[in-house]
């Protein structure tokens, strides 16, 4: 029902291009891991290596301690939820969900029963006789999930499963995915390029870039304490302020040389790390906050993005006295 996954020094090359470069990762049994990164970063390739749709040029994949080398997808304790769901259009939902069991020689009555139970798990109770084309995108997504889970895999692989859904439905499905994963305890490895989705569902986020793992940790950790600039900017909007010799463009700061990264919401009027008076260039109402572009009076070339409280709506040209919260100083 669940197993750990070890990715050991895996590389994947296609001709001259290196898609994965010496990647190692340990995934605990029952963990919900999200592989996050821009397109082309190698996250889907890594998922394919775990699922057996491709084999690494070098390195090994172990699931539950067992080396997966040479094992085809059907012989691995994994199943995949595909991006376009890949439901069988000519079969009913019940037959779709029961397909894996049928392949395993489970008797018709028994696998029908199991399929119905899986459909109930994903909230499609009593719809077993429908066909995929009668369903909405979100419902198809659930069927794909039920189908992959029906064979009780140790590890479930999800390849951008929510990518085709609209925003609202996506948020709703994230919650459901998470709660289903909690209930059944199967290891989930989920690929996405949406960092909000990653934070909403992951126990641990693995940030990937250019075939390498940049960073990994719980959502809070990678958001607040990113290990690299890439992670800092990929996880959310960030202001980068160069520091040299204890001097920032707007004045002296008690920080080592390098780049000071500030999240927009970490810049407030009361922040202890003073930036000083800043002129508002433009401001827009974003619902939960007001997003504004400002420039310190002392360094007009430094453009900062700040999130101000909902109630504030500064006019362009207005000057605000701003400072950074210490929790918002990213250690890079």
């Amino acid at each position: 029902m669940t197993a750990d996954v070890q990715i050991q020094a895996v590389s994947q090359r296609f001709g001259a291009s290196t898609v994965l470069d010496n990647v190692s990762l340990e995934i605990a049994a029952g963990e919900f891991v999200v592989l996050l990164g821009p397109s082309g970063c190698g996250k889907t390739t890594l998922l394919n290596l775990i699922g057996g749709f491709a084999e690494p040029t070098a390195g090994a994949v172990r699931i539950g301690g067992r080396d997966m080398a040479g094992l085809a997808p059907q012989h691995r304790p994994t199943t995949t939820v595909f991006q376009d769901y890949a439901l069988f259009p000519h079969m009913t939902l019940r037959d779709n969900v029961a397909f894996g069991l049928r392949m395993r020689g489970v008797a018709k009555a028994k696998r029908g029963e199991k399929a119905d139970a899986m459909l109930a798990l994903v909230g499609l109770e009593g719809r077993g006789d429908r066909r995929p084309h009668e369903l909405s995108g979100g419902q198809r997504q659930r069927v794909a999930l039920a189908r992959a889970l029906a064979v009780e895999p140790d590890v479930l692989l999800l390849d951008e499963p929510l990518g085709a859904l609209d925003l609202k439905l996506r948020r709703q499905m994230q919650d459901e995915l998470k709660s289903i994963q909690r209930r059944i305890g199967t290891t989930f490895v989920h690929v996405t390029h949406d960092q909000e989705e990653a934070m909403a569902i992951a126990d641990r986020i693995v940030v990937m870039n250019a075939g390498r793992i940049e960073d990994h940790g719980p959502p809070r950790e990678v958001y607040l304490h990113p290990k690299t600039l890439f992670t800092a900017s990929f996880m959310g909007e960030v202001n980068r302020i160069p520091i040299a010799g204890g001097q920032a463009p707007f004045g002296p700061v008690a920080l080592p040389d390098g780049t000071l990264c500030l999240r927009p919401e970490a810049i407030t009027e009361s922040g202890p790390l003073r930036i000083g008076p800043c002129r508002v260039l433009e401001a827009a109402f974003f619902g939960a906050h007001v997003r504004a572009h400002v420039a310190p009076v002392s360094a007009p070339d430094l453009k900062l993005v700040v999130h101000l409280p909902q109630s504030a709506m500064p006019a362009p040209g207005q000057v605000l006295d701003l400072g950074a919260e210490t929790w918002g100083v990213l250690s890079t």
């Binding site: 057996g52 491709a54 084999e55 080398a69 040479g70 094992l71 085809a72």
Partner: peptide, 8 residues
């Protein structure tokens, strides 16, 4: 035999 060889 590797997966690729088997596929082929």
């Amino acid at each position: 035999m590797t997966l690729k060889a088997r596929e082929h």
